Simulated assay, not measured.
Amino acid sequence: MLIIDGKKITEGILSDLKKLPVPSGKLVVVLVGENPASRSFLRQKERVARDLGVSFELRSLPDSLSQEELERVVLLTSQDASVRGVIVQLPLPQKYNAREVIKHIDMQKDIDALREGNEGMLPPAVLSLAYILKEINFDLTHKQVVVVGHGFLIGQPIALWLKNKKCDVVVLDKDNFTPSVLKEADLIISGTGKVGLIRGEYLKEGVVVVDYGYGMQEGKVSGDVDIDSVQNTGGFATPTPGGTGPLVVVSLLVNFYGKQ
């Protein structure tokens, strides 16, 4: 099994972005409540943005806001002429309807590309996957692809994108996980956050495994894939950390620049 170095791919993309003029306008992230994992992801986004010279602003809000109040904050942020890109940091606290909140971002400023009908950009999960497949020269044509997890940020946009390619796609839910389905897959994409869900004995020789999962095990950041158990399956796999995470972050900035 060859490890896909997401950091190395990210460095190449950043190098290309640094050759371009820095877009005018701010990148604003709206954070609601106190989620330690969200704070960690935000620090990564801020670090990359500032490295590129992009104006970054965090708007931290209490989770005491009502749905309507949050929607208004997002709408006003999006209407601000000095703002070029808006991100609502997900997941939101459970009391909120995230889809309704996202609808209040202007389509041109929705750099997460989560609004229905936003065809001008690829969601960062999708764009990062495209970068990975290009790096390893993986042709999707007539391949068997399994997407594990059907979440708003990862599984749903990736499955939708894949269905427009010439490949066969199966989507598994983490709560109805059927390991035997993985045995026929040429490409597996997982984003459940369930640590160690995918093991080497479930996989065929030469499979490509792209892991978007993120969780903690014994005090360490881990992904959906038990990376030790897949070492002898050949093919490729992304590690966690250092795999898809950096690529998802830089893909946001690619959308901010308007360069795909």
Score class of each variant (00 low, 15 high):
residue 4 I to A: 09
residue 10 T to R: 07
residue 10 T to H: 05
residue 11 E to K: 10
residue 17 L to W: 11
residue 24 S to A: 15
residue 27 L to H: 12
residue 27 L to V: 08
residue 35 N to G: 13
residue 35 N to R: 03
residue 36 P to C: 02
residue 36 P to F: 06
residue 41 F to Y: 15
residue 48 V to R: 08
residue 48 V to Q: 03
residue 49 A to W: 10
residue 54 V to F: 04
residue 54 V to N: 10
residue 55 S to D: 15
residue 56 F to W: 10
residue 57 E to L: 07
residue 59 R to F: 02
residue 61 L to T: 00
residue 62 P to H: 04
residue 65 L to I: 08
residue 67 Q to L: 02
residue 68 E to W: 00
residue 72 R to M: 15
residue 73 V to D: 13
residue 75 L to M: 05
residue 76 L to C: 06
residue 77 T to K: 09
residue 79 Q to G: 04
residue 80 D to L: 00
residue 80 D to H: 01
residue 80 D to V: 10
residue 83 V to A: 09
residue 84 R to I: 03
residue 85 G to E: 11
residue 91 P to L: 01
residue 92 L to Q: 07
residue 93 P to Q: 01
residue 94 Q to I: 02
residue 95 K to N: 06
residue 99 R to P: 09
residue 100 E to C: 04
residue 102 I to M: 01
residue 102 I to N: 02
residue 105 I to T: 10
residue 109 K to T: 09
residue 111 I to P: 05
residue 111 I to H: 03
residue 113 A to L: 08
residue 118 N to V: 03
residue 119 E to S: 09
residue 133 L to S: 07
residue 142 H to R: 14
residue 149 G to L: 06
residue 149 G to I: 04
residue 149 G to Q: 05
residue 156 Q to F: 05
residue 158 I to P: 08
residue 160 L to P: 04
residue 161 W to T: 05
residue 162 L to K: 07
residue 163 K to G: 02
residue 165 K to C: 11
residue 168 D to C: 04
residue 170 V to I: 14
residue 173 D to V: 02
residue 173 D to R: 00
residue 174 K to T: 06
residue 174 K to F: 13
residue 177 F to R: 10
residue 181 V to G: 04
residue 188 I to G: 07
residue 189 I to V: 15
residue 189 I to M: 06
residue 190 S to R: 10
residue 192 T to Y: 10
residue 193 G to L: 07
residue 194 K to V: 14
residue 195 V to Q: 06
residue 195 V to G: 12
residue 196 G to W: 09
residue 196 G to E: 14
residue 200 G to M: 00
residue 201 E to W: 00
residue 201 E to R: 12
residue 204 K to W: 08
residue 205 E to L: 06
residue 207 V to Q: 11
residue 207 V to P: 11
residue 208 V to Q: 03
residue 212 Y to A: 10
residue 216 M to D: 14
residue 219 G to N: 05
residue 224 D to I: 10
residue 224 D to V: 01
residue 228 D to A: 09
residue 231 Q to R: 15
residue 231 Q to F: 11
residue 232 N to S: 07
residue 233 T to W: 05
residue 233 T to Y: 03
residue 234 G to M: 13
residue 254 V to F: 06
residue 254 V to K: 15
residue 257 Y to W: 11
residue 259 K to T: 09
residue 259 K to L: 14
residue 260 Q to G: 09
